[in-house]
Design a protein around this nucleic acid. Structure first.
Lengths: 199, 199
DNA sequence: CGTACCATTGATCAGGTTCAATGCTCGTGG
DNA sequence: CCACGAGCATTGAACCTGATCAATGGTACG
């Protein structure tokens, strides 16, 4: 059983979506296990089937895939949010991405089998699952649109506005990959922006 | 009440996800209304809140957004599948996209309010909602990866492999926008591919 | 202090964009 | 039935942005 202190943030998160009763909440808490991942180490590795959802209590992560022998950073995850590979989790296929801690991290793990148990045991659980999935759709769809409709420079400006934490905490090479460009290009975009600001 | 003939495909679709009992199924059927959309006309227009999910019995659609005074085609939808703007439907915000029939189309509409009624009335409904949302996540995530990791040419080849219906049925200008490029560029990519095939 | 890693800058290259012109096809009206 | 026009696909030429390769600069850590 995770400590009160460790449970407080995830509990708050859950209540943003659904009104668990005492029983559901206790069951939920009982399913969680605490996990530490030191800086640079992996929570999930490409090739494994992702069989968990993890809530980040401390630290932040990046996900990346190997594409033609190159690491390409795909996304970032911060404390107070869940991290998982949804496609792998749901389809039970090996993941194509690796989740790496960018700082020493503390997580609460929820196993896939336990989630299924929850879904079978109560309507409210099922609703939680639905609302989370819907929440994720909105986020991914947003990303999709930005890749399709915006230039790299616009994406960078948008990132500054909507996820300043990324700019502040993540090395530039990773941000570049996230934006779909090379580090050199990001460097030049930043230079351009700095110059046009001066005028 | 929609006819047996109109109901058969959607029923099959639903059973791919969930085991509705007779009561759930009857309730589901009772919530559907039939709708015709002639070629070129809109099922949903940008600016409206999307308040329905529609199952396509006949015809196909494209979704597009206006970006800087330009229509940009975002996706295609074929018969035997649902069409909706998930982000608008879920967040109750005005849609940024328009859904246009590319052929005379027949649909079954399910209203948002009815869906909510379903979710409240049974666990199985809620599960259906969750599974559909999860299914959609896998699809969007795929698109996301292709935009981030692949070149336009690779995306086109991938599209031919995974969605040949699109290549066969959709005007090239729309396909180009879907791939994130200009029609001229798609034309040249096709030429390149045809030439390299000849050798 | 030195090394390793990351960000920056420069030079060149390649592919997609833009603008303009031509070709092609299909549907409509004379 | 043919002729015309509209809309889409193709092609050409010039351009522009991001990619690539190579070199330099900066900084943190052993």
């Amino acid at each position: 059983m995770v400590s009160d202190e460790d449970f407080v943030r995830i509990k708050e998160y859950v209540y943003r979506f659904v009104d668990f009763n005492a029983e559901d909440l206790a069951q939920f808490r009982g399913m969680l296990t605490k996990r530490y991942v030191p800086k640079g180490r992996f929570l999930l590795e490409a090739g494994q089937v992702c069989s968990h959802v993890a809530f980040i209590n401390k630290g932040h992560f990046r996900s990346f895939s190997m594409v033609q022998d190159e690491e390409i950073t795909y996304n970032f995850f911060f404390d107070g949010n869940f991290i998982t590979d949804y496609p792998s989790l749901l389809s039970r296929q090996p993941s194509t991405e690796t989740h790496q801690a960018l700082e020493d991290a503390e997580l609460l793990l929820l196993e896939y089998s336990e989630m299924q148990r929850g879904y079978n045991s109560s309507h409210m659980w099922e609703r939680f699952g639905r609302l989370i999935a819907e929440f994720i759709i909105i986020g991914i769809a947003q990303r999709n649109r930005s890749l399709l409709f915006m230039s790299p420079e616009e994406r960078y400006l948008d990132l500054m506005k909507t996820r300043p934490k990324v700019i502040a905490n993540i090395p530039q090479q990773y941000i570049a990959a996230y934006l779909g460009i090379q580090p050199e290009s990001l460097s030049r975009i930043r230079k351009r922006l700095a110059e046009s600001k001066k005028l």
